[in-house]
Amino acid sequence: MSRLPAAGGAHLVVLRNVWVHKGGTPWTMALFSVYEPILYLLAMGVGVGALVGRVPGVDVPYAAFIAPALLATAMMNSALEETTQTVYGKLAFDRYYHSLLVTPVTIRGMVAGELLWAVLRALVTGVGFLVVIVAFGLARSPLVILAVPAGLLTAFAFGAAGLAAAAYARGWHSFQYVQLVMLPMFLFATTFYPVTVYTGWVRVLVEALPLYHAIELSRGLALGEVGPGLLLNAAYLLAFGGVMLAVAQARWTTLMAR
């Protein structure tokens, strides 16, 4: 006889997603996910990098400066992809979660499962891009390997935000608003230059962005500049993700009661 699945069945939601993705190996998944950041690394890191030379203040080649930021954003994007449109389709059209509602899987289990899956998906991307960084000779410190677990924290934070967004979406067009936030955040949250470029209230604004903290954490570890500040960055991501997760849980519970 069966026992009730543990953790609200979260692992079973992950298992189902792995099952659906069984056509693609982790390597092909990683290849697709690192394609875009590699293009940025080549265009910006190598191309613009030739003009910039070494980044003032940090004293590393430009490509090595942006590589950890691209790692963080790539992992962020992987987690967001899995939790926004994909989840929305299953929620609004396939009514997949409604079919789970009558099983012992709980709503918490569904949300936790999708988040765990998004983090795992980001892990594949992270490992893939770490290989790229090492292959390009951009690793400045052995601590660069810790940029991947740091990216898991980023994936957690943005994955949780994605699950909340999917539950608030009123249609596919709603995700244009996600793009509206994500693109400027990617461009201005210190991906391509240090935060010292900004002054005054703009700097305060940028420092309030979750991606800024994700990049600080990733860059600090990758360049081997470890300090207590990194703990603050990690705490910010953890808190942001925690709040988003609570928002997502509450919204999903309301949605599923309809």
Partner: peptide, 30 residues
């Protein structure tokens, strides 16, 4: 865990095959 439910809209898992729908659904019941 002790009930069976046939909803009005089937809400089958469109990304799985017929057999996989049964297998994966069983896993949800532990």
């Amino acid at each position: 865990a002790r009930l069976g439910v046939v909803p009005q809209d089937d809400a089958l898992d469109l990304q799985l095959t017929v057999r996989e729908n049964l297998i994966v659904y069983g896993l949800y019941f532990g």
